[in-house]
Amino acid sequence: MSASLPPLTALRAFDAAARHMSFAKAAEELHVTPAALSFQIKSLEEHLGRPLFRRLNRAVELTEAGRALAPGAAEGFAALQSAWQAARRQGDDTTLTVTAGPALTAKWLAPRLYEFAREHPEIDLRFSATLRNMDLERDDVDVAIRFGDGPDEGLYSLPVRKEWQTPVMTPELAAQYPTPDSLRDAPLIHDDSITFLQPPCDWPAWFRAVGIEFVPEHGARFSNADHAIDAALAGVGVVLGRRSMILKDITEGRLVAPFKTAIETKGRYRFLCLPGAEKRPQIAAFRDWFVAEIEKTAHVSDEFEIIPVEKVTAP
């Protein structure tokens, strides 16, 4: 049994076969014939001096040695893939991959991206609209925009303005519910996408901000903020809308915010990337554009009395 490492191609064949528990599927993944893959694994077993698989009639299973090798092989190839992608990105100043939540992408980013594309035609911008936790070292992503209050340990993190919420509705509904107190009888829409924030930034908190003790017992509930806003646009009811999600619809008159009291959440959007990556030209350009776009609408906050949610927390 040799103490030296075996050929990388043989280890790769083993890794694929161990993941699929099938020589045929592993061969398909690696674009080789099953015979070629079987030869690679056999050479690996000869190098080790013991079998890695038990060959059954229509399946394979790992031996004790195979079970010992499989986790390390998988981690090793994942680390190699991550390092390779990181090395490629270091030399690429024209491609930028950004991940943001579906709601922010639909309601804020997408309507504005033509401005960034016009200002930076040299950058090939790619988007992944997801809330999945991304590993910026392993995943092929340069920038993540996330909402909340962190923590963002080990990352470059640039927080932007805190979000606030205020009731918004169609102009027709606004005529039916002209006062905060009248909202007790209105069909209220609940945005459950930020229920993770503490203290809660919800309808009871807003009602307390205007001096009303009221806990709604009914109303449509949505797990995505953009779906809650779309329901309000359709006239379903009144939603406690976040600043970033409602500004465009308010500016264009589809929604109105008749009550000038808002509650400020403890969460905010953060621009995240690996430490040092913020200096790469395309990331710096997107960061500066992102911050500038937010500041363009900062004056809208002057129209509201914005009350931190901590001040209206239920006793």
Rank of each mutant, 00 (worst) to 15 (best):
F259T: 02
K296A: 05
I307Y: 06
H227Y: 09
I212S: 10
H20A: 15
A65S: 15
H190Y: 07
P171A: 11
A13T: 08
G237L: 03
A36F: 08
L44V: 09
T95G: 01
Y177N: 02
D15E: 15
G49K: 06
F53T: 00
K260H: 13
F259M: 10
F196I: 10
D181C: 04
A174G: 13
K42H: 13
N133H: 10
N133A: 12
V300Y: 14
T166M: 02
A174I: 00
A26W: 04
E217I: 07
F259S: 04
K311M: 14
V239T: 06
T261M: 07
A234K: 12
L255G: 05
N133P: 03
G235P: 06
L272H: 02
R89V: 11
T265L: 02
K162D: 03
H227W: 07
A209Q: 05
L80Y: 08
G148S: 13
F14V: 07
E252I: 05
F222S: 03
M134K: 15
A59R: 14
R184N: 09
E305K: 13
F53W: 06
T95I: 07
L155I: 03
Y114L: 11
Q85F: 12
H47W: 15
A3M: 13
R268M: 03
L255K: 11
I189G: 00
L56Y: 06
L104K: 02
M245L: 13
A36Y: 08
T33R: 09
R50L: 10
D92T: 12
Q81L: 08
T261H: 03
I194D: 06
F147E: 01
G91I: 10
F259A: 03
F286D: 02
N57D: 14
C273H: 04
F23C: 01
R58F: 14
T179H: 09
E115Y: 08
E293T: 15
W203D: 01
K248E: 13
T97I: 15
F116T: 11
V256R: 04
L197Y: 01
P258S: 09
A228E: 00
A86T: 13
I283P: 01
F23T: 00
I212M: 11
I250M: 12
A70E: 12
E29G: 02
P178E: 08
H299M: 05
L8T: 14
E64A: 13
M245S: 08
I41Y: 04
L131I: 12
A3V: 10
E29Q: 14
R19F: 11
H120F: 13
E61Y: 08
I263C: 01
A100E: 05
L56T: 06
A83P: 01
